[in-house]
Amino acid sequence: MRIARIALVAAGVGATAFGVVLLLVTQRFDQLLSLGAWLAGAIIVHDGVLAPATTLTTRGLDRVGRVLPERSLTVIRMAWGVGACLTLLAVPLVIAQARGARNDSVLAGDYVRDLVLLWAAVAAVTLLAAAIGFVRSRRTSGTPPTTGP
């Protein structure tokens, strides 16, 4: 296990170092600057939007879901995270579409409909998984799991 971890870390550090060297050698300074801005944008969207939104809403979920066993709650938290990421992808497309596409071949999808469908699919899978978790934890514990504080 230890050796495997060391090997993984070494491979990761090596690949990253190779990528950085390649960037510095092949890209102009202004290109590196815009890459920096792009990467910073990703961090801002994650730390400023995605993480706070999911953390706050998951707290709320936890409060409502106290009656559920830990397993089911975990499944719901995961699903919420997946849904949040999908929503984050869809929002810029919906905004861009509302502002008008450049031509007919750009932004050709019905992104709102697809987002609704994907949320429905996530909800269906979650319901199933949470139900399985519920049944299993009843079986293993032998007592109803509704023993909230």
């Binding site: 995961m78 997946v82 990421c85 999908l86 992808l89 869809a90 750009v106 050709a108 697809d114 469908l117």
Partner: peptide
């Protein structure tokens, strides 16, 4: 799971076999 979901709905804009699932691709 989130990574899988995000990849599934975007990769199709460049990987042809995944095209039917590319819900959130601009193209």
């Amino acid at each position: 799971f989130a990574t899988l979901a995000v990849t599934a709905v975007t990769a199709g804009q460049t990987i042809a076999p995944l095209a039917p699932f590319a819900a959130f691709a601009p193209r």
